[in-house]
Design a protein around this nucleic acid. Structure first.
Lengths: 128, 128
DNA sequence: AGAACCTTGACAATGGCGTTGTCAAGGTTT
DNA sequence: AAACCTTGACAACGCCATTGTCAAGGTTCT
């Protein structure tokens, strides 16, 4: 255990460089840059222009991965969905998970991204 | 008798065979069958299995055309959007049209009444 | 300083999808 | 019978998503 409270773990805080972020979401760094070019993710930058992804950015990318890989939605569809979400001001995308979870048990890695982090997975400190 | 003097022109009433429907939406009949195979449109059938599209079906197809052609969304994206719309129970897609037209209106509740679709030409008189 | 990583930009390959189009063999409508 | 519908198959064109690499240069860490 020893996982005491960590109130200062701000999910908006930019912490991961692109290589780490790519590992976290299981994608190529190239892909993350494409997502940014497409306006789907906007990672922060260091004063010297290095991308830094926050926990929220990671979660957003995981949404993109889910929509594209599992649902076959293309980036234009993702953009439209995000736009809709922004316009309606809600996390409307979560409604999509009422279906994928109540399936026959042939699923591995059941994703439980209901309203919170799919799996906080105590992030390893990027000590390197 | 047994009919209103003014034909209500029920938008759910199946009236167009596939060739006519294809003309209305400017698509190939093949495409409409694909939409049906993908579960995006469900035209009624005559007792002898002939497809009959209603006005609502036509409007739905026009949505698909708009999303795919103008926005670049693929069919998987369209399906997700429709699913979301069904799940949230409203015509959420109309929110997508507030983009190109309005920007900084300043009014609180004036677009609720004008819920019509600007682009796909909701023609009340199909006199083709 | 040097190694390791980041930056943008370009180019390419692979695989998949959207759409249109056609052919066949048969049913329906007029 | 002619014209239209049905399903199913096959194909082609062009676009897209993703991964990958190369180059030339900036940043960070040891």
């Amino acid at each position: 255990m020893a996982s005491a409270r960590r109130p200062e773990r701000d999910p908006t805080r930019p912490v991961y460089v692109i290589s780490v972020a790519a590992t976290l979401v299981e994608a190529h760094p190239r892909t993350l840059r494409i997502y940014e070019d497409e306006g789907l993710v906007c990672p922060a930058r260091t004063p010297t222009n290095i991308r830094l992804y926050s926990e929220e950015d990671i979660r957003r990318i995981l949404w993109i991965r889910h929509l594209t890989r599992d649902r076959g939605v293309n980036l234009a569809g993702v953009r439209t969905l995000f736009e809709l979400e922004e316009r309606l001001g809600k996390r409307i995308l979560e409604a999509l998970y009422d279906e994928g979870t109540r399936e026959h048990g042939g699923d591995r890695e059941s994703r439980a991204a209901t309203a919170a982090t799919p799996r906080p997975a105590d992030d390893p400190e990027p000590s390197r």
